[in-house]
Every structure is written in structure tokens, then in C-alpha cells.
């Protein structure tokens, strides 16, 4: 359970970048935060993870105030995934994933459960074959999956994911979000995920929160709060909301495309290389 009430946050006093934000993520619920670059999405996650103190407002994460809870306690219940990580090249993937479980513990001992769970988590994300690779031998997307594995291997009650699919291929984006969605439901996790892809945000969330300039522009179930007017207002991009096969899609329209003026050919039915 995550409760955020009238949160103001920023990096310098008197210069808030998150302004009066409130939301609530229940057990087994997933909230997607979207918004333009610099809107304050990552800042909200950092507040929830306890990295920065709010200027004003109240945060409760699994019943704890992150700004007053020791990092060790938070690390055991929160799985936080940064957009990328700077890692020493000699670290192996398995070790990196295990580090998530071992670092908060304060002892040098490794249980076989730590190894097993870490490896199983890699397998869950379909990357167990990378276990013995060094971190600098991975592609960006593979590294992103490894980061996610580290957070999941902790078996957290709270998941805070900052653009977890930004570097993944089309299938992996959906597989990974589906996995996160399922785990959230099955294990009663409270998940907050930041996206730039509005359609991913729609597909794998209970609620979305649209942030612009640090302020909440919309908050609620995607089909209830999203509109082409909102997209125009927040991003300055013309968009159309359509329902295809029962799915809500946001399609961006731009008269700047170099492909504009195409005739409606039978694109759907033709095969590849045609």
C-alpha cells in the first residue's frame, strides 16, 4: 500500500519540481505515471524510495514514512529500478542480482536460497543464460532486465520502476510488463511504474497519473481520464483515442510526417516483402 498526500518535492528549497501530488496505490494495484521529460516522475519515485526528503506532504509506503526509515529497512520491502546503472565491469550478472538480497543484510554469508531465488528470477525474465556474463558484456536492454531481476529477486512488497521497458524490444516490452502485472496481482505488490509509452501505461495498469510541470493533470482509470485534449495539452501532440479489438489505443497524428499523404492501401492484408 502506498499513500501520497499533497506531496511537494524538489532538489532545492523553494524550487519544488513536484507540486501538490496525491495518489494511492492499493495492495495488488499498479499505477502508471506518464508525462513529459522533466515533469517530475523520477522525483516522485525517489521520494517514495526514500532517496530524497519531501519538502511538504505525507508519504506512507507499506505503513512506513520513507524519509524517517533506515535505508536497510526500506531496501528489504522496496524494489527500486533505476533507468540504468553504472556498474563495475567485472561484476557478473548473477552476483549483481544477488547483491540486491545480500547488501541490506549486513553479513557476508550467502544462503543457497539467495542463489536459487536470484537464478529463478533471471529465468523468469528469460535471461538465465546471461548469469555468468559480466555486466559490461550486456546490451542496454539486457542490462535493463538484469536491473529488474535484482529488484524482483528481493521479493519486495513495493515495486518502483523508472522506465523499466525503455530499452526493450517490442515483445520483451509486453512480456516484461505482463510479468510485472501478474506478480503485482499474485503477490499483492503495490507497483508504481513510470512510462513514456502511453499505450504500455494503458495496457498494464489499474490507474494512470498524468504529470505535467510537477502537477497532476489527470488521475484515474485510463479509459476514464485520458482524452485527445489531455494529450494535446500535456504533450502538445495531436492524438486520437481509438478502441481496436476492445483495447484502448492512443495514436499520435502529426502533419509533419514525411509519409503523409499516403492512400489507404490494403496494408493490413499484405504479407511481408510485398
Amino acid at each position: 500500500m502506498i499513500v501520497v498526500e499533497r506531496l511537494w518535492a524538489g532538489y532545492k528549497p523553494g524550487k519544488p519540481v513536484v507540486k501538490d501530488v496525491s495518489f494511492r496505490v492499493g495492495v495488488g494495484e499498479i499505477l502508471a505515471i506518464v508525462g513529459p521529460n522533466g515533469a517530475g516522475k523520477s522525483t516522485i519515485l525517489r521520494c517514495l524510495a526514500g532517496f530524497i526528503k519531501p519538502l511538504k506532504g505525507r508519504i506512507l509506503v507499506a505503513g512506513l514514512d520513507p524519509s524517517k526509515t533506515p535505508a536497510k529497512t526500506l531496501a528489504k520491502i522496496i524494489g527500486y529500478v533505476a533507468p540504468d546503472v553504472k556498474a563495475p565491469p567485472l561484476l557478473t550478472v548473477l552476483e549483481f542480482v544477488m547483491l540486491g538480497r545480500l547488501a541490506p543484510r549486513g553479513s557476508w554469508k550467502v544462503d543457497s536460497e539467495d542463489i536459487e531465488v536470484s537464478y529463478e528470477t533471471l529465468a523468469l525474465l528469460g535471461i538465465e543464460h546471461l548469469a555468468e556474463k559480466r555486466l559490461d558484456e550486456l546490451s542496454t536492454g539486457q542490462r535493463q532486465l538484469v536491473l529488474l531481476a535484482q529488484a524482483l529477486a528481493k521479493k519486495p512488497r513495493i515495486l518502483l520502476l523508472d522506465e523499466p521497458t525503455a530499452s526493450l524490444d517490442l515483445k520483451r516490452q509486453h512480456d516484461t510488463m505482463q510479468l510485472i502485472y501478474d506478480l503485482t496481482k499474485e503477490q499483492g505488490i503495490s507497483t508504481v511504474v513510470v512510462h513514456h509509452d502511453l499505450n504500455l501505461a494503458i495496457d498494464y495498469s489499474d490507474k494512470v497519473l498524468v504529470l505535467n510541470n510537477g502537477k497532476v493533470k489527470a488521475y484515474g482509470a485510463p479509459e476514464e481520464v485520458l482524452s485527445s485534449k489531455l494529450v494535446q495539452e500535456v504533450y502538445g501532440v495531436e492524438a486520437k483515442l481509438v478502441v481496436v479489438d476492445g483495447l484502448l489505443r492512443i495514436i499520435t497524428l502529426t502533419n509533419r510526417s514525411c509519409r503523409r499523404g499516403l492512400q489507404d492501401a490494403k496494408l493490413e492484408t499484405r504479407g511481408p516483402r510485398n
Partner: peptide, 22 residues
């Protein structure tokens, strides 16, 4: 005894902190 915490420091302060390292 603090081996894993020291290793976590190698990932940078932010990540180390998110791993529960003071």
C-alpha cells in the same frame, strides 16, 4: 563482514542506497 556493502558502493551512491546500504 561488510563485503557486500562495500561491493554495493561500487555501483554508485544512489544504487547502493537503494540496496539498503548506509
Amino acid at each position: 563482514y561488510a563485503a557486500w556493502k562495500l561491493e554495493a558502493l561500487r555501483l554508485g551512491d544512489d544504487v547502493a542506497q537503494s540496496l539498503g546500504v548506509d
